[in-house]
Write a protein that binds this DNA or RNA. Structure first.
Lengths: 114, 114
DNA sequence: AGCATGCGTAAGTGGTTACTAACGTTAGTG
DNA sequence: CACTAACGTTAGTAACCACTTACGCATGCT
């Protein structure tokens, strides 16, 4: 049950945050250099408060960092926040590989009894 | 533009499917060997129709395959379905690396691990 | 045929989410 | 101080999601 502990890390808020096209677009916008909330909002056709709420979700999921500069707030993607998701992905991927391996192993030995 | 095309391929249903703890648990249940819908439902404290709906979501996201065996339906995780998510993850990860690289370039002294 | 098993589907419901509009707050400027 | 700029926050709403109950549809057995 160590495996489930690995994936139960903090992957839930990350997946919930990424399960929204606009939030992924925002994340890409701030993935290389930081941008202000206004600059981000200018890229979309929804209102600025909506963008602010999306930024809050991303921040709570630890996917972006917030830095204050005067009246502005600058956001930047936080690569470390993706780590839990990468762990989950690797876990599912390797589980599939384990199945493929046992299938290859079963070619010699006919059957397995649970 | 090419980058956004990469991540826009089919990652949305995948992320939506994974953004649910029970669906991730189901995916892990069928990640190594196939199980029937009833066997899966027996592992949870929600009703069978609810599990069936979750399985439909997973199937629509191409994360599981469905095979009929008599009156039963056997499900198995489909590793290939995770590929779009892996692509998105790599894209975001490498974007962060690109930023770190340009930062290191801008500074004279290299700064690697805080 | 008749009946049971195993599952999906339809309809309806409470809770959540993404949005808009209006208001509040903080930092800078004259 | 007053005033503006740049945001976040609150309140309210329409759409969505996960769930349950009831029903339908195959397949297998006698």
């Amino acid at each position: 049950m160590g495996l489930s502990a690995l994936s139960a890390d903090g992957v839930d808020p990350v997946l919930r945050a990424l399960a929204e096209p606009r939030r992924r677009a925002i994340l890409r916008l701030v993935s290389e250099h930081e941008r202000s909330a206004g600059e981000i909002a200018a890229e979309f056709d929804i209102t600025r408060p909506a963008i602010s709420q999306h930024l809050t979700v991303l921040k709570d999921a630890a996917l972006v960092t917030e830095r204050r500069d005067g009246t502005r707030r600058l956001y930047l993607a936080r690569r470390e926040g993706l780590r839990a998701l990468r762990t989950l992905l690797d876990e599912l991927w390797s589980a599939g590989l384990a199945r493929a391996a046992s299938l290859a192993e079963a070619e010699d030995a006919p059957k397995e009894k649970p």
